[in-house]
């Protein structure tokens, strides 16, 4: 069996296009961890995450023959992931998470993150609390704002690349990022 780990994405794609299952598997294994972590932000259950994962990579498998190297493979893969996640979110919008605040349905309570942990003995617990709070705050964003925000902050993509992935103009991505930042700043108080 050929050692695929040393091959570039493009070489793996060429081999997979010629029918090499090993090359396709190596390509999946190289990227699926990142894809799954992105999917996790859009799913309420691991079963849904598995379904989306399969949908994404089956689309990749079926579409690989038409892939013409006009963009990076990862950009194309994230575009597919984005589309599937956003479709999923649109479909299951009615299951949207309830507000963190028991007293307000639409408004999120403000959390002074900097203050957390200063006087508490269990820093690990505080850290978990912070993470959960931030995750909930990010999940409260509109789907496209959330996707743009995560691609920027979690995967460090440039605005131009996010525009390619989400098939939007760069202006639209700047707007999503700005709105997402403003909303998060309202929810998560930095100081």
């Amino acid at each position: 069996m050929e050692d695929f780990t040393s091959l570039s994405d493009n070489d793996l794609i060429l081999a997979a296009k010629k029918g090499s299952d090993g090359a396709f598997t190596a390509l999946v294994y190289r990227h699926d961890r990142t894809v799954l972590s992105l999917i996790a932000h859009y799913c309420k259950s691991s079963d849904d995450a598995k379904d989306i994962y399969q949908e994404v990579f089956l689309r990749v498998y079926k579409g690989l023959k038409r892939f013409e190297f006009r963009s990076e493979f990862s950009t194309w893969l994230f575009r597919i992931t984005t589309n599937v996640c956003l479709s999923y979110q649109a479909k299951y919008k009615r299951y949207k998470k309830v507000s963190l605040s028991p007293s307000a349905d639409d408004e999120h309570p403000t959390l002074d993150i900097a203050a957390l942990g200063e006087h508490e003995p269990d820093n690990q617990l505080i850290s978990a609390e912070k993470s959960a709070y931030v995750r909930n705050a990010v999940e409260s964003l509109a789907p496209k704002q959330k996707m743009a925000f995560m691609l920027k902050h979690l995967h460090d993509y440039k605005i131009k690349e996010i525009a390619q992935i989400m098939e939007c103009s760069e202006g639209a991505i700047k707007k999503y990022l700005f709105l997402a930042t403003e909303k998060l700043r309202l929810i998560i108080k930095p100081n």
């Binding site: 972590s37 996790a40 932000h41 993150i113 850290s127 912070k130 993470s131 959960a132 709070y133 931030v134 995750r135 705050a137 990010v138 995560m150 902050h153 979690l154 930042t181 998060l184 700043r185 998560i188 930095p190």
Partner: peptide, 11 residues
């Protein structure tokens, strides 16, 4: 902001 949200985004 990015430093604060990163831990919450990482899964």
């Amino acid at each position: 902001l990015p430093q604060m949200v990163k831990s919450g985004l990482t899964v």
